[in-house]
Simulated scan of single mutants.
Amino acid sequence: MITEIGKVVALKGDRVWVQTIRTSACQSCAARNGCGQKVLAAASGGRANQILVANSVDARVGDEVTIGIDEQALLGASLLVYAVPLILMVVASILGHQWSGGHDGAAMLGAVLGLSAGFYAGRKFQRAGGKDYEPRLVRVNRVASENCL
Rank of each mutant, 00 (worst) to 15 (best):
Q72G: 09
L109G: 08
A41R: 01
F119Y: 04
S56E: 09
G96A: 05
G46Q: 04
A30W: 03
A43W: 00
V16F: 02
R136G: 12
A117L: 14
A107N: 05
E134D: 14
A31W: 10
G130F: 01
L86H: 10
V112Y: 00
G129W: 11
Q98F: 02
R142D: 09
S56C: 03
A41E: 00
Q27S: 13
T20W: 08
D63W: 03
A48H: 01
L109P: 02
R127Q: 13
E64I: 14
S93N: 04
V53R: 04
A107I: 09
G102H: 10
W99N: 06
A117Q: 06
A48W: 01
L109Y: 01
L86C: 14
R142Y: 11
V91W: 01
G129K: 13
L79C: 15
S116R: 05
V140I: 09
L137D: 09
E146F: 08
R47W: 05
D70F: 11
L79V: 15
E146V: 09
S100K: 05
V57C: 12
L80V: 15
L137A: 13
V65A: 04
A111E: 00
G110Y: 04
M89C: 14
W17M: 00
I51G: 04
I67H: 01
G101A: 08
A128S: 11
N141I: 09
D104F: 05
D132G: 14
